[in-house]
Write a protein that binds this DNA or RNA. Structure first.
Lengths: 216, 216
DNA sequence: CAAATAGTGTCTCTGAGACAGTATGAG
DNA sequence: CTCATACTGTCTCAGAGACACTATTTG
C-alpha cells in the first residue's frame, strides 16, 4: 500500500482490477510472493513493478496479515500487507492484470467499496501511517531528498488532517536529536527570508515524539 | 506466544521440540493453519491445544509475520505470530510433537538460542507487550477476573522490569475512564486496610496512557 | 522602504513525579 | 494501642501550546 502526499492531500495508490474476481473494482496493488523470496523483498518487488520507483530500501513497513477464509473467492489466500510512504511518484503506470493505476485522495476513497477486504486494510494502514509520523522519522519519506521544514509540516498536516502552528512545529522537529540535519543550502526561488534545506538524519525513533493532533 | 506473570517475573511458554528440525531445542509453541480457518481462530486453537486454557476470546493480538526463505529447513514456511497475555495457567502439558512444555522467565531466555528465528519473534513480542501495557487495558489479562490495584502494579513492574510508585500508579490507573471498575468487594486475608477488588472495564484504549518507565 | 517568511522569547497551563500526610482495618 | 497497607494533598518541575516579537531576505 503506497501513500503519498500530492497537493497537500494524502493519496493512496490504487489499481482498477482487469480480471475477475472483482473485475473493474478498485483495489490495493499487490501480488504473490515467489518461492525463495523474503516477504519484505516481495513487497518491494511488487511496489517497483507497480510504480517504477527506485527501490526504497528500508522504507517498507509490515502492516499486518489478513487470512479470513472466503476473503478471496478463488480460494485460500493470506495477504501480508505492507506500507510505503513515498514522495509524489508522478503518474503511475498500470502493470499486468490491471486496467488502470491511479493515485486517489484517501478522503475520497475511505468508506468506498474496494475489492476484497481492502477497505479494512486501508483503514489499518492509515492509522499506522498516522502513528508512524508521531514516533518515527518516516514523514521525511514523503519528501524529496532535501526539503524545508515547511514542506515537512505540510506532510504532517495532510496525514493528520489538521493544521499545526508553524513556529511550534519548527521547534518540535528541531528539538529531536538526529531527526533533521541542515544541509547548509537554501531553497531557491522563494520570496522572503531564505529557507534552509534539510536532509533526514540517522534517527530511527523520534524521542521526544511529535505529538499527534486530532483533525481540526 | 504466551506471556504470563509468575512470581513477580514475566514468563513465556516454550516447548522442547520432540522432532527434527531443531529436535531438543526450545521453541515457541505453534502449528499450522487449517484450510478454511481464520488466522485468529488458528492461533486460539493452537493456544488451547498447548495450554488447555479456556478460550480467551479477544485476548489474542497479531504480532507480525515472518517469511524469510530458509528460516525453516523443511521448506518455505511463513509464520504469523500471535501474542497472548494470560494469568498463570499453572503447569502446561506438552502437546503432540513436543517433549516438554514449560514456563520460562523471559530474562533467562532472551538471547538464548531458540529454534528457528524464534529469538527474534520473542524480542518483537516482548516489545509489543510492553507497548500494550502503555496504551491498552490488556495488563488486566495477566490477572484473575477480580484483582487489586497492587496486583496490577506488580504486572506492570514485571513486564517493564522497573519499580513504580504505588501512590502515583494508583492515581494513574484510576484516572483512566473505563479502565477499572470497582466490584465493591474487598480482598480477603490481608493485614492492614482492606484492599478493594476491581474488574477490567470496557475501555479498549487507555486515554491518557500509563506512561512507560525504563528499567530501573 | 514594504512584504513575506524564518526563526526566537516568553507566558501560561497541564500533567507527571516525588513524597508527606491521612484513613481504615487486623490483631 | 501499634502496625500495615490503602488512599489523598500538595509542591515542583518540565513540556506543550499560544502568540508577540525579531531576523533576514526580495523587490
Amino acid at each position: 500500500m503506497v501513500f503519498t502526499v500530492v497537493d497537500q492531500a494524502l493519496h493512496v495508490l490504487l489499481i482498477r482490477r482487469g480480471a475477475d474476481p472483482y473485475a473493474g473494482r478498485w483495489a490495493l496493488p499487490g501480488g504473490f510472493v515467489h518461492i525463495d523470496e523474503d516477504l519484505d523483498a516481495a513487497a518491494e518487488r511488487e511496489l517497483v513493478e507497480e510504480t517504477g520507483v527506485a527501490g526504497p530500501v528500508g522504507q517498507l513497513a509490515q502492516l499486518a496479515s489478513y487470512g479470513a477464509p472466503g476473503r478471496d473467492p478463488r480460494g485460500r489466500v493470506v495477504t501480508v500487507a505492507y506500507l510505503a510512504l513515498l514522495p509524489d511518484p508522478g503518474s503511475p503506470t498500470a502493470g499486468t492484470d490491471a486496467s488502470a493505476a491511479q493515485l486517489r485522495p484517501v478522503a475520497d476513497v475511505a468508506g468506498t467499496d474496494l475489492a476484497f477486504d481492502h477497505d479494512r486494510i486501508l483503514a489499518d494502514g492509515l492509522e499506522r501511517a498516522r502513528s508512524m509520523l508521531e514516533h518515527t522519522p518516516r514523514a521525511t519519506a514523503f519528501c524529496p531528498p532535501e526539503f524545508t521544514i515547511t514542506e515537512l509540516r505540510a506532510v504532517y498536516e495532510a496525514v493528520w488532517d489538521t493544521t499545526l502552528d508553524p513556529r511550534d512545529f519548527y521547534r518540535a522537529v528541531t528539538a529531536v536529536p538526529d531527526f533533521l540535519v541542515a544541509t547548509g543550502r537554501n531553497a531557491a526561488g522563494g520570496t522572503g527570508r531564505p529557507v534552509k534545506l534539510y536532509r533526514a538524519g540517522p534517527a530511527r525513533r523520534l524521542q521526544p515524539p511529535i505529538r499527534r493532533r486530532e483533525p481540526s
